[in-house]
Every structure is written in C-alpha cells, then in structure tokens.
Write a protein that binds this DNA or RNA. Structure first.
Lengths: 205, 205
DNA sequence: CCTCAACTTGGACGGACGACCAAAAACCTG
DNA sequence: CAGGTTTTTGGTCGTCCGTCCAAGTTGAGG
C-alpha cells in the first residue's frame, strides 16, 4: 500500500467499517472483512488502531458526529405555508430516505446499540445524539420561521422528541416494511410538534 | 440431563438464549454460552434446533409473541381523570421499567434488528410488532374509557405511532441515560395521542 | 429379560477469529 | 550513498466458533 498519513488511514478504515456494517451487519465487521473492504493488508488495522473495539468506537463517533438527519431543502416558502405541512414534508423526506436505503439506517442503529451496551453500567457516556438534537432543533427553527410561527416549548426539547420518534419510525418500518404506516407516523409527529407552536401569528392579531 | 419433552427443551433453550442476549448482547449468544446458561450439554442444542439461527429465530418469535408493553394497572378511575394524564402515567410507567432494566429492552432491540437485517431483501416478513400494536390499541381503548373520551382516529393506527415513539424513547435513553428527558418524551407522546380524541364529552354537550 | 427407538452426551473437526511480530520496504537525515 | 527511523506487510499463534457424530443412556412394548 502506498504511503499514507496515519490520520487519513484511520478515516479510510472507519469508512470501510461503516460500509461493512451496512452490508453485513455488526457481526460481520471482522478485521479481515474491514481491511479487505479498505483494500489494505491485514496488519494495517492494528497499526492504526489498538484493537477492533477501538476502531468500532471511532466508527460510532464518526456516525454521531456526522449530521444523521439530512435536512431536505426547506420547502419553498409558499406564502401561506402551514407549519404542520412544512414539518410533515421534512419528516416524510426522511422516511423516503429510509425506504430507499434501509441498510444504512439499520447499520447506524446497530452501532448505536453496540455503544449503548458498553455504556450500560458506566456513566451516561459521551453525548450520543447531541449532534442530532442540534441539527433538528435548527430545522425546527427554520420551519417555524417559514410558516411564521413561534415555538411555545424549547425547540431543543422538541428536537429530542422528534429524534426519538424518527428512531421509532425507523425500527418499526424495518420490522414490517409498511411505508404507508411510516408516512402516517411522519404526519403524526408533524402535528404533534406543531401543537407546541402558536398557530399563525396573524390569527392572534 | 434428565429426560425432557422436546417442546419443553426448546422453550428452555429459548429462555436461556434471551438471558444470554440480555447479559452479553447478541454477539455473545453462542452455542456454548446458551447451553451453559440452560445447564445442558453442548449437543442438546442441535438436537432441539437445526442451527443456532433457527434458535435465534425462535427466540425472536418468543419476544414478539409475548406482550412487550406491560400495561401498568390502569389508574384508579378517578372521577375527573384527564386523558392526557392517564396516558402519561402509562407511558411513564414504561420508562420506569426501562430505567430499571435497560438490558432487557436493549436485548429486545438487538433481536429485532437482527431479524430486520435478514428480512432486508425479502418480503415484508411475518408481522413483527403486530402483537404490540394489538396490546397497545387495547390500552388506548381502556384509557379513553377511563377518561370518558372517544378516539377520533383509529386506535390501531395511534397504537402504531405509540409503539414507534416508545421504541424511540428507548433508543435515545439508552444512548444518553437522560431519564428526565425520557419522561418528558412520555408526556409529549401522551398529549400527542390525546390530541386525537374528543375532549371530555361533557364539554361537547 | 430382551429389543428397539428415542433421547442424551461430550469429544472432534475444519474454519474463522483477534492479536502479535519479525522481516521487508519506504522514507528522512546527514 | 550510508545509517536510522517509521511504516508496511503477510504469515503465524492460540482461541473459540458452529456443526457433526459415534457412542452411551433411558424407558416403553413384547
């Protein structure tokens, strides 16, 4: 293998690990499978990481650091945009992503649970979903602005609830592949969130 | 080992499997760990099941068949029971269960994801959460009756959303161990559900 | 008591695993 | 080019895995 900075090699191994977990599940994430995926010789893994567990941990960090919930470009700011519809469109966008590439979401959940098990008896553990909460809180603010509404509850708290429901929509869809029901769940979440915002401010004038 | 009917032996192995997964995760569910947990010799497993995968599948079926969401005894039917509070109490009861025995919920999720991965490319697969939906739908009916309300959406659909949110509350709590936030999620779910019922019928007279 | 089928048991086999390491190669400094 | 350090490589070790199987044990029917 060509010479390569250590950090870059680590990132390549992390990327290969994510690909392997997406394809074969966390049980298939073995040293040999990972280095094969990365096109590296066997010894490369233990030169960059102390053990596979360390690599797994780095892969989990990479997932949590990255912005899981990719925002669909906010809907065109139609003049009379309804908050519930704006939110529903966003969540339904996530469901479309899930249906299109379920193995990716499945891999994320497997990694999350793997990390959760190690933390079972320890302290709370380094913030797991924190980044998702931040991203989603930002989206909520944007959505409210688009619809001309104001949140009556802390967006950050609402974001946590939204992340939870998104996770649940994912696990249930993975179990039964019922896309229509998942979309209904998206609308349920949207209206539940909208209940914590003022209606159109114009109604209050 | 004492003589034992085949079916009873299968059930004992399934129970041992669930115990092992709860303690060591799905990765620790090996033939030897399972038979040791069950107090059986090594060969017993392959006499009762064709392979460990078949045993795993049986364990998953056992989980889905059993009523995951144990209903807290419905709140005393106070005269002026508020639907949101009745629901919140129930969901908070589940959160208490989760906090008290997180490894159990973690094991269930691991098994569910394991089954989901095998079904990724197949058809929808045998109903996974169906039983949970049924149980929860029944609880919703009971809660509405207690509070003297009527659902304005199909309880079965609401049950699915509730199961999803419960799953999400579980995964997020497992990630950050934030019990207070999980309780807030419980109340969020309760009020979101209550929004799909008529207020107290007395108000509509 | 004998027979036979059902059941039980633990050893054995081939394979895959994580980890380690000695040698080879590449690179940098003088 | 020579010497020394870092990086790369693939072979090897001990362990554990799932599965198989050939014996051993049990208990009911004749």
């Amino acid at each position: 293998m060509s010479r390569m900075p250590l950090e870059e090699r680590r990132e390549a191994l992390v990327a290969a690990t994510l690909a392997v977990v997406e394809r074969d599940g966390i049980g298939g994430a073995t040293t040999r499978a990972i280095v094969t995926e990365a096109g590296m010789p066997l010894g490369a893994l233990h030169y960059a990481f102390a053990s596979v567990d360390h690599l797994l941990a780095a892969a989990i960090d990479a997932v949590t650091d990255q912005e899981r919930i990719v925002a669909e470009a906010p809907l065109a700011t139609g003049t009379g945009a309804d908050l519930t519809e704006v939110l529903a469109a966003g969540v339904e966008g996530y469901v479309s992503l899930l249906v299109e590439r379920p193995a990716r979401e499945l891999a994320y959940l497997e990694l999350m649970l793997h990390a959760s098990r190690q933390r079972l008896d320890d302290g709370p553990g380094a913030g797991g979903y924190e980044r998702s909460y931040d991203v989603l809180a930002g989206l909520l603010e944007t959505a409210a602005a688009t619809a001309g509404c104001v949140w009556t509850a802390p967006p950050r708290a609402l974001a946590r609830h939204a992340v939870a429901m998104l996770d649940g929509i994912t696990t249930t869809w993975l179990a039964d592949h019922d896309t229509e029901a998942a979309m209904a769940g998206a609308r349920f979440l949207a209206s539940a969130l909208a209940a914590h915002a003022t209606g159109r401010p114009t109604e209050e004038d």
